[in-house]
């Protein structure tokens, strides 16, 4: 009997893995929305390329979460049969693409974090997570280079591109704090050496981000109030629309194989 939604046993390791998988899936999905609509063909390819990398990371992480969970869930059930409240991605990554500057700023803020994060996770005592980290780090290093270069081109390009890039930074800044947030479910994993403490990444992240933003003649906002909730399934209103599109076929034809 086909089910409309799945139950997930959110043990700390499953929850931890799903949070990272959801990050990759949701950002990959957003990037894939650009396909055929980018400002230039080269960028169409680059955005699809990064979207594909992220989709690949999501699939590996979902597969691992399914294995750890030990129920009959799999990557597609996690992706297609969980509702908004079960999704655990960062709020930053579900933000709409907006214009190219908004997409690039979102990409830059996350890639600058992901690059540090995956590099640190290569030391995880969990061999699967360490292996996924080793692969993902190579990809995020490319993503951070690509988005940094665009930050500088847009910030130090024309008046209009500068204005758009600054406005994207101002709008998205409040979503960056969630990347460094730690909750109780992750503490045990950190003590066991499975996860890393994201708070420790904040200083190096800020150094990278300030450096690029500075070179781009842009500025970081003074307001350091940070929005949270994605990790607990309290999302912005954007995610529901994204999921209704993403999940439409498996929900229309429950139980079918594609």
């Amino acid at each position: 009997m086909a089910v409309a939604s799945i139950q997930v046993s959110e043990t700390p390791l499953v929850l931890y893995t799903l949070r990272r998988a959801d990050d990759a899936l949701i950002l990959g999905h957003r990037l894939s929305e650009w396909c055929g609509h980018a400002p230039m063909m080269e960028e169409d390819m680059a955005l699809a390329n990064m979207g594909l990398d992220l989709l690949g990371q999501a699939r590996e992480l979902y597969a691992y979460a399914a294995k750890v969970e030990g129920r009959d869930n799999d990557e597609d059930k996690f992706a297609y049969l969980r509702d908004v409240r079960q999704y655990r991605n960062l709020l930053l990554l579900e933000q709409p693409n907006g214009d190219f500057a908004r997409t690039m700023v979102r990409q830059f803020f996350y890639a600058a974090f992901a690059d540090l994060y995956w590099r640190a996770m290569m030391q995880s005592s969990d061999p699967t997570l360490a292996a996924i980290a080793a692969k993902s780090e190579k990809e995020s290093a490319y993503h951070v280079r690509h988005s940094s270069e665009w930050m500088v081109r847009l910030g130090d390009g024309t008046e209009e591109s500068h204005r758009r890039a600054q406005s994207a930074i101002d709008d998205l800044w409040a979503y960056t704090g969630e990347m460094f947030h730690l909750d109780d479910s992750e503490r045990g994993l950190i003590d066991a050496g499975i996860a890393i403490d994201p708070a420790k990444l904040h200083a190096p992240w800020l150094k990278t981000v300030s450096g690029v933003v500075n070179e781009a003649t842009l500025a970081l906002p003074d307001n350091n109030w940070m929005q949270q909730g994605g990790r607990d399934g309290r999302h912005s209103e954007h995610l529901g629309h994204l999921l209704s599109e993403l999940q439409s076929l498996p929900r229309t034809f429950p139980g079918a194989t594609w």
């Binding site: 894939s32 594909l52 989709l55 699939r59 992706a79 599109e245 993403l246 498996p250 594609w258």
Partner: peptide
Amino acid sequence: WITRAPSLRRKAALLAKVQ
């Protein structure tokens, strides 16, 4: 159909193809 592909495997293949 990229945003609506019915499985992650199909979605990855389609995105790669369009790329």
